[in-house]
Design a protein around this nucleic acid. Structure first.
Length: 577
RNA sequence: GCCCUCGUAGCUCAGCGGAUAGAGCAGGAGCCUUCUAAGCUCUUGGCCGCAGGUUCGAGUCCUGCCGAGGGCGCCA
């Protein structure tokens, strides 16, 4: 019999079979309302009897009884109990759990299946602006997007990441004019200062502003000199972005850059297509689409402006062309946009127009993966004292420096290893703090919290891993596949159940694009491990050989699960702390 | 004015229509001749913003209020 590595799925399959044979009801195994139980001594519960009762016209406890009587799960379930209004509680067999855990030994996927319905994702993330240094505002898209990249790929989907650089549009007119004004030789050392100077001139000098607007038109028309100047800006910026990605451990490379400029050749076609379909109207000189159902301040229809009155294109046109490109040219099934939640309405409108235009069909799924803001300790948008956005590179360097200080105080690491560990701990802390909460909510950035050794932090997980590896080193033996696992102590059993829930955790994180579900699971698993570590001596001379082998296996598997989980979040786990 | 998101312990946050709403921090009491104390155990602490509704069952779904943040034609 083939069994699901995931406990809930396996129970669901058994319950579905019992409902079929015992009650002649067909329910999909995933809809059997199997949940891990919070009751003491109960592993899982099934809540389906209550919901079936009305449909069948029978009392829920009677339905539950029929379910239990028809259940063919003696190999797996030690005990069933009907409780309350019709809950069915399951206690799993220790030997069955032990066998399932033992099967994970040597499995690089730790029991996580590859999806049987692979899809092709276009994943838009990071997307910083050229000619600006990356700041905290770019961090969440980068970190969350990268975690989703890893999670989706691990689940067996094809992921086409693209970095939608802000490398086009109105600001480039003023940036290029400013380049010309300040002489063409020499490289730009400070991107932010350069941008701000250009901005200041644009706001103060009407003639400059006009030149800038004209320059945008030249750029979009493909003027050769303009194009070269523009390329210089892009190249300088891309080098800066790559430095941040390298420090952060982000998978994006130059090959993933599909900036706004990439879609420029398609913008005219998009407008033509929309016009041919009769979707456009000219309003105040601008070509607009008014998707149904969107209204603005005075109840008037809201436009998506696809071509501005000056003939230029805005980001709406680019976003339409982007969806068109990835669905038509790259044949993706899914479009994900990891972009802050203020853009929610914009994406709703873009998706609506894409559907009207046929760029998105019922074969496609497009989703705005929205996220909240990073707040300072004062609960407001994180800013420097001068009110500017905080440079990301400086923030990351501070994280590494703070981690290094803790290591200096506490660790017995060799001098040579400290820098690498400080980087893993510091960067991991920043990323984990960004991933550990529901992405839709704002979160408060506090060093103390993210570098805390207790609680749901990356440091806690890395510490648990380091302890396990220390034990494994001291054991002086490698755990072999086929090692017998025995679950005598409650702490051993609790850990085993947790280890077997990795597939469910990853499935939830992938299905809902919710990395924090994986974070929560990893924290629970590390907590279960510490309980085991405290109560179940592994290497003590009083521990019998077979128990020692079993405990080493549990410890090794815990490390595998935690390391795998962290890797899917883009976080490293040092050998020692 | 309309639209979107959020409101759970003093603080930071989990919570999948299911039973007595969970963690961590902070507060209180303990635990290092023993595998990393960057750890663990025990403990105090809740009108789940308010009011209705749907449901056998609502922190979770729906409606309306209140509060916070964000968005609402040529920036992206």
């Amino acid at each position: 019999m083939s069994t699901h590595a995931d406990l809930g799925m396996e129970l669901g399959a058994r319950v579905a079979a019992a409902l079929r044979t015992g009650l002649d009801v067909r329910v999909d195994p995933v809809d059997t309302l199997i949940r891990p139980s919070t009751r003491d001594g109960v592993d899982y519960q099934c809540n389906i009897a209550m919901s079936l009762a009305k449909k069948l016209g029978r009392p829920p406890r009677e339905v539950a009884t029929a379910l239990v009587e028809a259940l063919d799960a003696a190999d797996m379930v030690a005990e069933t109990e009907i409780a309350g209004p019709g809950f069915v509680n399951f206690v799993l067999r220790d030997d069955w759990l032990a066998e399932r855990v033992a099967e994970l030994l040597g499995d690089p996927r730790a029991g996580v299946p590859v999806t049987d319905a692979p899809r092709r994702f276009a994943l838009d993330y990071s997307s910083p602006n050229v000619a600006k240094t990356m700041h905290v505002g770019n961090m969440r898209s980068t970190v969350i997007g990268d975690a989703l990249h890893r999670l989706l790929a691990f689940a067996g989907h094809e992921v086409l990441p693209h970095n939608h650089l802000g490398d086009w549009g109105t600001p480039f007119g003023m940036l290029i004019e400013h380049m010309l004004d300040s002489g063409l030789d020499g490289s730009i050392t400070d991107l932010n200062a350069f941008y701000q100077q250009a901005r200041a001139k644009f706001d103060a000098d009407e003639a400059f502003a006009t030149r800038s607007r004209d320059r945008v038109v030249k750029l979009q028309a493909g003027d050769e000199q303009t194009r070269q100047l523009w390329q210089r800006l892009v190249d300088e910026s891309a080098r800066h972005f790559q430095a941040v990605y390298d420090l952060l451990g982000i998978r994006l490379t130059q090959a993933n850059i599909y900036g706004e400029s990439f879609y420029n050749p398609y913008l005219g076609e998009v407008v033509d297509e929309l016009t041919e379909l009769g979707l456009t109207e000219v309003s105040d000189g601008a070509v607009c689409v008014f998707p149904p159902g969107f209204t603005g301040r005075e109840g008037q229809r809201l436009p998506l402006i696809v071509r501005k009155s000056d003939g230029g294109y805005g980001y709406a046109a680019t976003d339409l062309a982007t969806a068109r490109y990835w669905t038509r040219e790259r044949d993706v099934t899914d479009l994900l946009y990891v972009v802050g939640s203020p853009q929610a309405q914009h994406f709703q409108m873009v998706f609506a127009v894409c559907t009207q235009a046929g760029y998105l069909t019922d074969k496609h799924r497009a989703e705005h993966i929205a996220f909240g803001s990073v707040l300072g300790a004062d609960g407001k948008m994180m800013r420097t004292r001068a009110g500017e956005s905080v440079a990301l590179i400086g923030l990351l360097e501070e994280a590494v420096a703070r981690a290094a200080k803790v290591i200096e105080e506490r660790s017995e690491l060799a001098e040579a290893d400290r820098a690498a560990v400080a980087r893993a701990v510091g960067i991991g802390a920043v990323k984990y703090a960004d991933l550990a909460g529901d992405r839709l909510k704002d979160y408060v950035f506090t060093w103390e919290k993210m570098l805390a050794k207790d609680g749901n932090t990356s440091v806690y997980l890395q510490y648990a891993i380091a302890r396990i590896r220390s034990v494994l080193r001291k054991a002086g033996e490698t755990v072999q596949p086929g090692t017998a696992v025995r679950l005598g102590e409650p702490a051993e059993r609790a850990l085993a159940v947790k280890l077997l829930q990795l597939p469910a955790a990853i499935d939830a994180a992938v299905a809902e694009y919710a990395p924090h579900k994986l974070c929560g699971y990893l924290f629970e698993t590390a907590s279960a491990f510490t309980g085991f570590y405290e109560n179940c001596p592994i290497l003590a001379s009083s521990t019998p050989d077979d128990v020692r082998g079993s405990r080493l296996a549990l410890a090794a598997l815990t490390a595998d699960v935690l390391v795998l989980g962290l890797s899917l979040l883009g976080i490293d786990a040092p050998e020692r702390l």
